[in-house]
């Protein structure tokens, strides 16, 4: 009997099934007026799920207008799949309700923790890279994916600290989790670059360790350099080394939905969109690699 392959982002989605999504842009409040008025041609928008997991009012009204015109993919910041406490049912219920509204083909959140004993830090805190943490996190991802009934992909976070208790590298941990969970990877190449500079590893070693068939989506963003570390600030254009890493990622993974995040000191929509569309230059390479 032939064993079915495990595909990126889920057990349901064949590889490249979503590659037609192309280049997307993160939907941000300062741009909404421009988007609704001018209806720019954009492949898809990524929304922060939590901004729309509300009872009603303007956020949902605006989202419905966006959905009339555009494809939307949901990206979460607070499932805290690595927190040592169970998933919150109310959170999942609200997330699923939003998923039904947007029709997102997959949903993403971070491979991190951020809450403990019911107290929330509202940050994306790095995991201790232990087998216990990998097993626990994978179990929560499977539970979330089963409940939400859409493929789930987890994003590697940028980090500024490593724990003494870690038993493996970050990329080994990521692979351990996604293989156990049967989920996808949202590969943030800026985060790989930031963490590589903060922890002193080769970003290509990280990139080459990620199974390309697991990569459901790629994130791009800018960062800020400080004297002793780099901060993932999402307030600049994408830097040269990150574009280089993106090129190598796309060569490995083939055509993959790619999104630019710009969250602070946000320039005009046209400028953000122009920056995102620079990723198009790498698509022929990706398409050649895929054939």
């Amino acid at each position: 009997m032939r064993i079915p392959a495990i595909f990126p982002a889920s057990r349901m989605t064949p590889r490249f099934a979503n590659s037609h999504y192309g280049i997307g842009v993160g939907l941000r409040t300062p741009h909404i007026g421009h988007i609704l008025e001018h209806k720019p041609v954009v492949s898809w928008f990524e929304i922060i799920s939590e901004n729309y997991m509300v009872g009603g009012g303007r956020p949902l009204a605006v989202l419905d207008r966006i959905l009339e015109q555009y494809k939307v993919v949901q990206h979460g910041v607070s499932l805290y799949l690595g927190s040592a406490e169970p998933l919150q049912r109310d959170h999942l219920r609200r997330l699923k309700s939003l998923i039904r509204r947007t029709g997102t083909p997959w949903v993403t959140d971070h491979l991190c923790w951020g809450s403990v004993d019911g107290r929330y830090t509202h940050d994306l805190l790095p995991m201790p890279y232990t087998f216990e943490a990998a097993r626990w996190t994978a179990r929560k991802i499977r539970q979330a994916q089963d409940y939400l009934e859409v493929p789930l992909a987890v994003e590697n976070v940028s980090s500024y600290a490593e724990f003494h208790v870690s038993e493996m590298t970050e990329w080994e941990f990521l692979n351990e989790v996604v293989e156990r969970a049967g989920c996808g990877v949202l590969l943030d190449v800026n985060n790989i670059y930031v963490s590589s500079r903060n922890h002193g590893f080769d970003p290509l070693t990280y990139l080459n360790a990620i199974p390309p068939e697991r990569v459901a989506q790629i994130h791009l963003a800018g960062h800020s350099k400080f004297e002793k570390y780099i901060l993932d600030t999402h307030d600049h254009p994408v830097t040269g080394p990150v574009w280089k890493l993106y090129q190598q990622a796309i060569e490995r993974c083939g055509p993959t939905p790619t999104l630019l995040e710009w969250d602070d000191h946000i320039p005009s929509f046209e400028e953000v969109h122009r920056e995102a569309l620079k990723a198009q230059a790498y698509l022929p390479v990706a398409e050649a690699a895929a054939t």
Binding site: T121, H122, Y160, A161, E162, F163, H164, K228, L231
Partner: peptide, 22 residues
């Protein structure tokens, strides 16, 4: 006790990045 230092930052300096952000 929890965090590894690196060649540029002590453990408490690395924690401080997260505390400032929080």
């Amino acid at each position: 006790r929890l965090i590894k230092p690196n060649d540029r930052l002590s453990a408490s300096e690395r924690l401080a990045i997260y505390r400032r952000s929080y």
